[in-house]
Computed example of a mutant assay.
Amino acid sequence: MKIKKVDVFAARLPLKEPFIISYLRLDDMPTILTRVETESGLVGWGEAVPDPIVTGETWESTYQIIRNELAPLLIDESPFSIDRIHKKFNETVSEVPSAKAALDIALYDLMGKITGQPVYQLIGGKAHEELQVPKVISIKEPEVMAEDASNYVAAGCRNIKIKVGTNAADDIKRIQAVREAIGKDVQLRVDANQGWSRIEALKVIHETADCNVDWYEQPVKAHDLKSMKEIRSVSHASIMIDEGVHNIHDLVDVIEMRAADMLNIKLMKSGGIYPALALANLAEAADMPCQIGSMVESAIGTMAGAHLAIAKSIIKTNEMVGPQMFLKDVASVTFDGDILQFSNQPGLGIEVDEDFVKEITCFSCEIQ
């Protein structure tokens, strides 16, 4: 069964409220959606959510790379030729991981639909019984973040992640306020998104030692593995690396330097499910627990990450939060409290609303 057509949609998803992290504010979410169709009429959907700071791609550049370079490589290929296709991608253009992820995810969706299986069955079956999803709170004043966290916990959420990375003094107040608001039993995770210097990171970690933080994520710049190692050596809690690892070569360096305790894998950083599996396998060999993170993706990217998360035992946590942050999504994702539900339908297990996709699309193209 061969691929005959690829549609690419540059769209913007409406957020419930602005999403603010250390280096960026978003009032809506720019995304690139891909629709890959076989000669028999089966359709697979994929997504790219690029980030100029993290993936080195913009919304516009990702659209052009998929349209002009990557999508044409799929025509007349089998969706199952995933290794060869990624080799063609990498020989055609270096890096651009979210662009590659947009097509990789669509291929897995197609493989599942062709075989009549959910994607997780194609990559190992269920390693976990369920996926518990945290609530992510973007940067606000400490008292506002504390109120948000308290409301989430009252609604049944058992895991809170907060975005920080502005300055040490304010971030200490944010962490302390949220911990006080949620009580001692709710899990708390802290993500600086590269926002601190080494000295600031050490100060924040020391001053919040009594806040029982599960882990501090990417405290310093992505390239600064030496500081990561120094911070890890004195931290009372685990240190997670995120932006510092895109591929297996990065992860080898982290493992050799002992620069982190945990790894945050994102499909948009790694290039899709296929290369993300390689990261998870290497992390498992190093006994490094993993998380599947999110760039605040629609139902498409979210469910791709969810299938990977539930299929690998080394992946202990996830951040499949995107669908909860949009006013309206391109497909329905169901949560039972803080547990993400799988439909067990083939592929990603979602039904994409193509009319809504067209409604939020700013520009599009067709490759065949």
Rank of each mutant, 00 (worst) to 15 (best):
K16P: 03
I20S: 04
R25N: 09
L26H: 10
L26T: 03
E39A: 14
G41C: 10
A48H: 07
P50K: 07
D51I: 05
P52A: 13
I53Q: 10
T58C: 09
T58Y: 04
E69Q: 14
E77Y: 13
F80A: 14
I85C: 06
H86Q: 12
V93P: 00
S94E: 10
V96R: 14
A101C: 15
I105H: 01
L107T: 01
L107W: 00
L107E: 05
Y108E: 08
M111S: 08
M111C: 15
Q121I: 02
I123V: 14
A127K: 10
H128E: 05
V136N: 02
I137T: 05
I139K: 03
E141S: 12
V144P: 01
D148A: 05
V153H: 10
N159R: 13
K163R: 14
T166E: 11
K173N: 12
G183M: 12
V186F: 03
V190H: 09
W196D: 02
S197D: 09
I199T: 15
L202E: 15
K203M: 13
E207A: 15
N212T: 06
W215Y: 15
Y216G: 02
A222R: 12
L225G: 00
I231R: 09
S233P: 03
I239Y: 05
M240N: 02
M240E: 09
E243N: 09
N247I: 09
N247V: 13
M262G: 00
N264V: 08
K266D: 04
L267P: 03
M268S: 11
K269F: 08
Y274A: 12
P275L: 07
L277T: 12
A280W: 03
E284P: 00
A285V: 13
P289A: 11
P289K: 11
I292D: 11
I300C: 06
G305V: 02
A311P: 08
K312W: 05
I314W: 07
K316C: 05
N318A: 15
E319F: 00
E319A: 08
V321S: 07
P323C: 13
M325K: 13
L327I: 13
L327W: 01
K328T: 12
D329Y: 06
V330N: 03
S332L: 11
S332W: 00
V333Q: 08
V333S: 04
D336W: 00
D336Y: 09
L340R: 01
P346A: 14
G347M: 07
G347S: 12
G349S: 09
I350F: 13
D355M: 13
F356C: 10
V357S: 06
V357C: 12
K358F: 08
K358G: 03
I360F: 01
F363W: 12
F363T: 11
C365H: 12
